[in-house]
Amino acid sequence: MMQRIKPFDHLILILGALFLCMPVVMAFASSTHTAIDIHSNGLYVMPGSNGAETYTKVLTKRGGFTGEVTGLTMLMNSMILGVGFAVGKIVLSMMAAYALVYFRFRFATPIFWVIFTTLLLPLEVRIMPSYQVMSELKLLNTYQGLIVPLLASATGTFFFRQFFKSVPDELLEAARIDGAGPVKFFIDILVPLSRTMMAAIFIIMFIYGWNQYLWPMLMTTDESFFTLMRGIKTILQVWVGSQIPDYNEAFALAVLAMVPPLVVVLVFQRMFIKGLTESDK
């Protein structure tokens, strides 16, 4: 049965799409104009001709207080944080979920609760003591310090636990008849079986890691560890008090910071939605 299509529905959708997408389009277009043009004419909807110059400058100019950090360094650090976090999350949570689902052992239930209590509190509410712990462990200004504390939550574990529970029991029975031990069963059967799930979780976690702001801001004082998000903060600190702020460079930085996650979401759209709606964040 078909419903009549009303132009009104399309109107609402077009308005919604414009409201959501125009700021992104204008940020990109304006990043290709000069700061002076933006200052006198406002934001642009169409791209200009100054793009190559601005982006080369943002990517390669040495900035910051020590003159050490470039946009390229920050891009690389964001990538390390995003990929490192996603991979770490998948490895840790698959292993823990495997132990909880496939083994009969003492303390399994208390361990379950110890891990899942972490879902209660986001990092933001324990940010101050987390920072103190990191400085006691001498992990400030390291990649481990940037990535590992973010892994201390059970989101992925919860997801893989649900998935493993839905795997048919017959698989394990068959594997045991063939004489496969727990490690072999995990690596040869369960991991290949989880490939789609791993990809979906990877997408969600990569975006989550890439987009981190508060934690990298506190953990890194050494500019060679700055991520793009941290770079945004630096731009703002010189903003106040300048005659004509470098609008174009700020926009270019924003574009650099949003392109990788945007591409991932758009290219792997179906898998991204699967990961998001099935992992419940």
Binding site: L20, N211, A257
Partner: peptide, 12 residues
């Protein structure tokens, strides 16, 4: 068009 903005970080 409607889901793209999800990817954008809060600071951005």
């Amino acid at each position: 068009a409607l889901i793209a903005v999800y990817a954008i970080a809060p600071p951005v």
